Simulated scan of single mutants.
Amino acid sequence: MSQYYGLIPAAGTGSRMGVDLPKQYLDIAGHPMIYYAVRTMASSPLLARVYVVLADTDSWWNDYDWSEFGDKLQVLRCGGPTRADSVSNGLAAMPVEAQDWVLVHDAARPCLTMAMIAKLITEVGETEVGGLLAIPVADTLKRAAGQHVSATEPRESLWQAQTPQMFRHAMLQQALHQDNGFVPTDEASAIEALGHAPLLVAADSSNFKVTYPNDLMMARLILERTGT
């Protein structure tokens, strides 16, 4: 039986937040933002272990107490200059089997729930390709030329990718090691470049990515509403 593992790349700086502290360590209700992603994944009985990929120069992680997660949480100080590099390095350092599933999740998505993890695992099932949480695009999309609209894009069949994104360990390693000059912005796009079609698993908008300062307040409100 294949096992399921969590992988949280957290070697970035989050420059769009406009602060010196790496985004994953910004405070939400008394905890660093990454704590909530770690807690949800470590609490899921479906995941055998959760790996966090840090930059080798990270000096913030050890300022916090992570002991509540015990051995289920493992830190890998092998982060790279890009997300793809961090995920690739993390995959190489994980002592797992080729056919095991890896659920890659953003440290900046603190509102993930165990129900979302369970839904992803259930719907992807034993497919050979894998899949990701996503939501259909609801807003009207405008293509810009400078600060002006050049076209309105049809939103039918468009989805907004979220995380976790779940793929088999060996396939994801292969996808991220393609020597074609393509730099994927998420794991699904790397898998797509191999010619595969990942499964879209409907999530909801609460699993959003904290990108700008105002997003912190929204995340805090969602976490308070859900009692987490």
Rank of each mutant, 00 (worst) to 15 (best):
S44I: 05
S44N: 01
L46K: 13
L47E: 01
A48D: 06
R49E: 13
V50F: 00
V50G: 00
V50R: 01
V50S: 02
Y51W: 14
Y51L: 12
V52F: 00
V52P: 00
V53W: 05
V53R: 01
A55S: 13
T57L: 08
D58Q: 13
W60A: 11
W60P: 02
W60T: 09
W60S: 10
W61P: 09
N62L: 14
N62Y: 14
N62S: 15
D63N: 10
D63I: 02
D63W: 07
Y64K: 13
D65I: 05
D65C: 04
D65S: 04
W66M: 04
W66G: 02
W66C: 04
S67G: 08
S67V: 09
S67H: 14
E68Y: 14
E68S: 15
F69I: 08
F69W: 08
G70K: 10
G70T: 07
G70W: 12
K72C: 08
K72L: 10
L73F: 04
L73D: 02
Q74N: 01
L76G: 02
L76Y: 01
R77Y: 14
R77K: 12
C78K: 05
G79D: 03
T82S: 15
T82D: 10
T82F: 14
R83I: 14
A84D: 09
A84F: 07
D85N: 08
D85Y: 05
D85A: 11
S86N: 09
S88F: 13
N89G: 09
G90I: 14
G90Y: 14
L91C: 06
L91T: 05
L91Q: 05
A92W: 06
A93P: 07
A93T: 06
M94W: 07
P95Q: 12
V96E: 01
V96S: 01
V96N: 02
V96L: 03
E97F: 10
E97D: 09
E97L: 12
A98G: 05
A98Y: 06
Q99T: 15
Q99W: 13
D100P: 08
W101Q: 04
W101T: 01
W101Y: 08
V102K: 00
V102P: 00
L103T: 00
V104F: 12
H105V: 11
D106G: 04
D106K: 05
D106F: 07
D106I: 07
A107V: 15
A108P: 08
A108M: 15
R109F: 11
R109P: 03
L112A: 03
T113W: 09
T113Q: 09
T113F: 10
M114Y: 11
M114N: 15
A115R: 00
A115E: 01
I117V: 14
I117N: 05
I117Q: 06
